[in-house]
Nucleic acid binder design. Structure first.
Lengths: 240, 240
DNA sequence: CGCTCGGTTGATGCACATCAAAGGCTGTGG
DNA sequence: CCACAGCCTTTGATGTGCATCAACCGAGCG
């Protein structure tokens, strides 16, 4: 057992993951030693585009810290199509909230979008995570953000599709700190936008091409850039 | 200051609130002494129907434990109508998640539904709440439930209005533990249902009266009882 | 008594979904 | 190497679920 851990640990070092972890906002002001002990036994998962990190309904024996790329959190609807609950980027912690339960199952699936990497950490480690007030605080903040985002979407429930799309694009563009360019740091298909706002692909396409024509946005091989965020913001409050 | 606390504390005793608190699942297996110290300085707020407990955007200097009745958590849309985010009952903790932030503002408003009582606890107490692993654990579970509910609603986003209504009614009916009668333990107007599922009052009324005619539900002065939950569940999965 | 609030019903219209068809692009295997 | 399948995108035609508007009723209430 401990041998196994050792091995995993050396793996952490090997790939130079430790400094990468320390660079995350999640672990800022933590010493390398602390991070190393918190992530003991963690294993780096490298995913291509569209690979499942974990699946809704399966046993939650691990939790995850995203290192690079992005993952979508998805649930299937009974009609067979997907509903995207959230997009997670580097520094996000996945599967932590439910670890306090007895026999936890993942409530959602996590699927990579483009090449992505995550650290897979045994559930057992969580006991020392939750004894660290700073860490608990930061994980709560991550959850709080997700909650706020879900609530905001509920508020826009009765609004037009354009309002929901504007909200989504702006929210995603804010993920990256460099405010100069409003480029969404996640490769995003129209279908994924549709699954997020709960609409059909065709409707998304119609609105996106309209916005492109008007010069509000530019899309370029799944990279979406917002040119006139003021116009998009208008949609979010528009009566009509 | 300490005098004030004393007074508040005696207030806790006076109204016999302490045993009431201890009876909550939140505090089960806690001693009266512990609960008393955790809720030190707390003040009981008694509300009629439709009174504001706290308002979105105001400074969050307190957090709350619901003693009796129910509260709806609401945000205004830019169009001027309400969006109900969640219904909270006895034992729920409100305003706790954001207390880890620097200068927290309530992200939502809480409004009583029918006569309700809540314990208003100074923010300062939260520091000793969050040092108690059991309490942190239980508050996380409450949050987890809210998260799951919001996610479920996202999954039903593309479904018919009937599916969303069925989901809501069943979820609310499950709030009360007595499984014999499927009565929703919260007085609920059609408008409130509409604001929760993001629909118009008229549409809710049409569906509710249809269901009443068919004998699926009975409503009786804002008390809704589900007679045939199997029929409602059918709607949640129905293709058409 | 007029007031507001909650419930109800019908007529009309629109913002979407749905269906259908087609073209580009990528990877895969014969 | 080409053929084929699968994914993503696009456009047009058609349909419909639900919002919106308008009007009315009953109950509670200052």
């Amino acid at each position: 057992m401990s041998v196994n851990c050792e091995c995993m640990n050396s793996e952490l070092m090997q790939y130079g993951v430790l400094p990468e972890l320390c660079a995350l906002k999640l672990f800022s002001e933590f010493s390398e030693l602390e991070v190393k002990s918190l992530c003991q036994g963690g294993k780096v998962i490298v995913n291509d585009h569209r690979k499942v990190l974990f699946k809704a309904g399966s046993k939650a024996d691990f939790f995850f810290v995203i290192l690079s790329g992005a993952f979508k959190l998805v649930r299937q609807t009974l009609q067979g199509d997907d509903a995207i609950i959230h997009f997670s980027g580097p520094g996000d912690v996945l599967g932590a909230l439910i670890l306090t339960q007895r026999n936890p199952l993942y409530p959602i699936s996590a699927i990579s979008m483009g090449p992505s990497r995550a650290l897979k950490i045994p559930k057992a480690n969580y006991s020392c995570w939750k004894d660290n007030p700073t860490l608990v605080f930061r994980i709560q903040n991550l959850l709080s953000n997700r909650m706020v985002s879900l609530q905001q979407q509920k508020v826009l429930n009765k609004s037009s599709l354009q309002a929901k799309m504007a909200n989504l694009l702006i929210e995603l563009a804010e993920l990256q700190s460099t405010n100069s360019q409003q480029t969404i740091p996640i490769p995003l298909t129209r279908k994924e936008i549709a699954d997020t706002v709960g609409a059909s692909v065709e409707s998304i396409i119609r609105i996106m091409s309209d916005w492109s024509k008007k010069g509000y946005v530019v899309t370029n091989d799944k990279q979406i850039t917002i040119l006139k965020s003021s116009k998009l913001i208008e949609f979010m409050g528009a009566e009509i």
